[in-house]
Design a protein around this nucleic acid. Sequence first.
DNA 1: CATAATAGGGAATGATTGTTTCCGAATAAA
DNA 2: TTTATTCGGAAACAATCATTCCCTATTATG
Lengths: 184, 184
Amino acid sequence: MDTALDRALRVFRERGYHATSIGDLTAAMRLATGSVYKAFRDKHAVFLAAFERYVAVRGEQTRSAAGRGASGRERLRNVLLSYVEHSQGIEGRRGCLVVGSAVELSAVDPVIRTRVSAQLETNEDFIAGLIREGQADGSIPGHVNADDTARLMICITQGMRVVGKARLPLDGERLVGVAMKLLA
Amino acid sequence: MDTALDRALRVFRERGYHATSIGDLTAAMRLATGSVYKAFRDKHAVFLAAFERYVAVRGEQTRSAAGRGASGRERLRNVLLSYVEHSQGIEGRRGCLVVGSAVELSAVDPVIRTRVSAQLETNEDFIAGLIREGQADGSIPGHVNADDTARLMICITQGMRVVGKARLPLDGERLVGVAMKLLA
DNA sequence: CATAATAGGGAATGATTGTTTCCGAATAAA
DNA sequence: TTTATTCGGAAACAATCATTCCCTATTATG
C-alpha cells in the first residue's frame, strides 16, 4: 500500500493533480484501473492519501534533520539545510506536494486548502519552537521575534521549493548562511 | 486585446493551466471559441501571451515600488512590501503566474520553464542591483553579499506568493522588518 | 450601391478524461 | 475437492476536453 502510494506520490509531485491522468497513475503504481478504484473512491482520494503520506514522510525527515543539532540554533540550521537539499537536483525537480497543492488546488478545493494551511502552520510552529529552544539554551538572542521569524522562514522554505522546481541552483551553505542572519 | 488577455490572465492565475478549460477561457474573455482560436494558435499560445503580459505588468509594478525610495535600502524595502501586499487578500488568492507556472508546468513544458527561469533571474538581478545601489549610497553595509542575499530574497518573495495563496495572513511591516535584517 | 474581406459566434468532431462494470485468476475455507 | 471470496486486469461507459469548420454580421473597397 505504502509503496503504491509512494509511486503515485512521485507522479503527482512531478506533474501536479490535473495533469496526471488515471492512466499515468496506474502506470506509475503498476496497478490496473479497477484495482485503483477498488482501493480508493476516486482520483481525489488517491491524491489525498498521497498528500498525507507525503506530509508524514517529510515531517519525519525534517524532525530527523533537527535531531542532529546540539543547540536550538544548530537544529534550525540543519532544518534549513535539509530544505535546501530537498529543493535541489532530482528531488527539487520533483517538487513539494504541499507547495504544488497550495498553488494548483487551494483556490478551487476547500479540502486541500485546509490541509495545506494546516501543514504550513504545523511547520511554522515547529520552526518557532526551535527558535524558542535556541533562546532558552542561549544560542539565539532573546529579542528575536519567534513568530514573525518563523513565518518568514516558512516563506523561505516554500520559496526554495519553487525556485528548485525551476531548476535554479541553490547553494546550501551560502543560502543558509545568509538566512541565519535572521537570528541575530 | 490587452483587456481580453487580462481576463484570461485572471482565470489562469486562479485555476492554473490544466484546470482552465477553453470554456472557462471564453467565458472569462467574453469571446466565442472560434474567436479565441482565430486570435491564438491554441490554448498554449493564449497562456504564453497571458504569461508575457503578466510579467510585463508585474515588472512595471515593482519598478514603480522601487521608484518610491530615496536610498537603495528604502527602494528594496518598498519592493519587499509591494510583494507582501500582492501576496495578500484577493490578489494573493489569485496567485502569481510565475510561481504557478514554475510549479505546474516547468517539469513538463520546456518553453514555460525557460521563461520562468529567465523571469526569476531577472527579478534576482533587479534585487541584487538594488542592494549594490544601497552599498554605493551607504544605506547597506558593504560586507553584504549581493548575489547570495538576492537569491534568498527571491525565495522569500516566491514563498510569500505560496503562503498567500494558502490564505495565511501576512503582516507586511513585521515580515519585511524581519527580512531587512538580511541587510545588516 | 455592390462586393470583397474579415472578424466573430456557435455547432460539430475526435480524442481523452474519469469512472464503472464485468471477467478471470488466485487464495482461503469447508 | 469444492466452494467462497478477494484481488487484479481489461474492456466499455458517459462526460468533457481542445480543436476545427462553417455560417453570419460588419466593415472596407471598388
